[in-house]
Amino acid sequence: MTATALTMLNCHLTIPALYFRGINDMYVRHSRIQHGVGQGSFHSATVEFSATGRHRFDYVFDCGALKYAKLSPEFQYALKRVSLTKRAPGGNKAVLDLMVLSHFDADHMNGAQSLVKRYAVDRIVLPYLGVEELALIIASQADAIDKDTLKELHGLANGVGKLWKRPVTMVKTGPRKTEERVFSDDPQREPPDAERSEPPRTQEFPHPVSVVLESTGAAPGTVMLDEDNLVVGSSSAGRHDTWKLRFWNRGLHATLGEPGIWQDFERHYKRELPQTQTVVVPHHGAAPNAGARFYNPGLNHRPRVNAVISYAVRNSHGHPHPSVLADIAYAGGRLLRVTDDTRLGYQEIYLFRP
């Protein structure tokens, strides 16, 4: 039996699908918080595995918020509430296994460097950054990104370097030659020898997890295709008990309101979307007067899907737009507002058993 959950988050570049496959006495506990940081997005989560002793995976999705062009005090408060543990790889710092930044707008990443200084971040996942993408970022965000970070982004755009001295994996659009994935989802498939050969590390508690590409079983490199997945699990238990992150990238200007973009998105998540329980509404519920909308009613594909909107109560952009709220209501969505007035944010906890 397979238990599956999908959380699609606030972005226009990279959207992770998270789902679990378990057997025997395995279970997974997934807890996440959409923090009330104001005009921005900050999501932290923990995945705990149980089959071979407690294994733990901590990740953050987006890490920023603006208040009068500066990092909001609500974000600083939320950063202190992130519950992480010290493990051997982090030395004296608590470990964050993965930080995903959906795009380079300041309200989604201006707190990321503070987080990297505070915790031992193992890897950062970004949208693919080439020379063209970097030029657009510089044109629109140069005043909001410090010179050292811009220098590191320049290196990444040319295929070298790290970000804030941490390893980076950039998610690139796959070839879209077929609707089928480039790897099998057969739960009986054996993992590669390299993954099986790693001995269990029982001296640490919580025990560490491995993060590998599903297509190869190898650790992710600087670039991965969005047709692949990142697989998270205990190194000793194989792939039967795994948590997967599936990304999607159609470029800087892709918006779900465009029919062609939505069709690609829907095909990409054809196995996960029908089981979606929570979505974070893209771009804080924005709906520009000119151009395609960011929100697509297909996200609320059935009644009672949680539709989380993260925004500042007093913002100059008019977020969320009434038309987006109307679409969510028409679809029977469960609207959940996360603002600077709700500092504790929105929390959900799921326990998955096979």
Score class of each variant (00 low, 15 high):
residue 64 G to D: 06
residue 70 K to S: 15
residue 22 G to A: 15
residue 27 Y to P: 10
residue 250 R to M: 13
residue 326 A to E: 10
residue 229 N to T: 09
residue 44 S to W: 03
residue 147 K to C: 08
residue 321 H to R: 03
residue 86 K to P: 09
residue 285 G to K: 00
residue 146 D to Q: 08
residue 73 P to R: 02
residue 103 H to K: 04
residue 254 A to Q: 05
residue 65 A to P: 00
residue 28 V to I: 10
residue 240 H to I: 12
residue 173 T to A: 15
residue 314 R to I: 13
residue 329 A to Q: 10
residue 52 T to K: 13
residue 12 H to G: 11
residue 191 P to D: 04
residue 244 K to P: 03
residue 304 R to S: 11
residue 145 I to Q: 02
residue 208 P to C: 02
residue 185 D to P: 06
residue 175 P to T: 03
residue 71 L to V: 08
residue 228 D to V: 08
residue 57 F to M: 07
residue 259 P to F: 02
residue 30 H to F: 15
residue 350 Y to N: 11
residue 79 L to C: 10
residue 321 H to N: 07
residue 264 D to S: 13
residue 301 H to K: 04
residue 281 V to C: 01
residue 148 D to G: 08
residue 128 Y to A: 04
residue 235 S to G: 12
residue 95 V to P: 09
residue 324 V to Q: 03
residue 147 K to F: 11
residue 224 M to K: 02
residue 157 A to N: 05
residue 318 G to Q: 04
residue 125 V to Q: 01
residue 134 L to N: 02
residue 184 S to G: 07
residue 132 E to L: 15
residue 179 E to I: 12
residue 271 R to H: 14
residue 272 E to R: 00
residue 10 N to G: 08
residue 205 F to T: 13
residue 97 D to P: 10
residue 234 S to W: 02
residue 236 S to E: 13
residue 196 R to D: 04
residue 278 T to G: 03
residue 298 G to F: 00
residue 145 I to P: 00
residue 183 F to Y: 14
residue 95 V to I: 08
residue 351 L to M: 09
residue 292 A to D: 11
residue 348 E to R: 07
residue 318 G to N: 02
residue 299 L to N: 00
residue 307 A to R: 00
residue 319 H to T: 05
residue 207 H to Q: 15
residue 194 A to E: 12
residue 225 L to A: 13
residue 232 V to L: 00
residue 176 R to P: 09
residue 119 Y to N: 07
residue 51 A to C: 11
residue 120 A to G: 08
residue 89 P to I: 08
residue 148 D to V: 14
residue 51 A to I: 12
residue 236 S to N: 14
residue 157 A to K: 04
residue 283 H to W: 09
residue 1 M to V: 14
residue 292 A to Q: 09
residue 125 V to A: 01
residue 137 I to C: 01
residue 45 A to W: 04
residue 42 F to E: 02
residue 124 I to H: 01
residue 106 A to L: 06
residue 345 G to T: 01
residue 146 D to A: 08
residue 207 H to A: 15
residue 157 A to P: 09
residue 301 H to E: 05
residue 116 V to R: 01
residue 278 T to D: 07
residue 150 L to C: 01
residue 121 V to E: 05
residue 233 G to E: 03
residue 200 P to Y: 04
residue 97 D to T: 05
residue 179 E to T: 13
residue 322 P to T: 01
residue 254 A to L: 06
residue 119 Y to T: 07
residue 132 E to S: 15
residue 141 Q to C: 10
residue 109 M to C: 11
residue 274 P to S: 04
residue 65 A to K: 01
residue 118 R to G: 04
residue 131 V to L: 13
residue 61 F to H: 05
residue 29 R to Y: 06
residue 79 L to T: 07
residue 105 D to W: 06
residue 119 Y to F: 14
residue 174 G to I: 03
residue 77 Y to Q: 14
residue 320 P to R: 00
residue 95 V to Y: 02
residue 76 Q to T: 13
residue 199 P to G: 04
residue 262 W to T: 00
residue 104 F to I: 02
residue 142 A to P: 02
residue 32 R to E: 10
residue 3 A to Q: 13
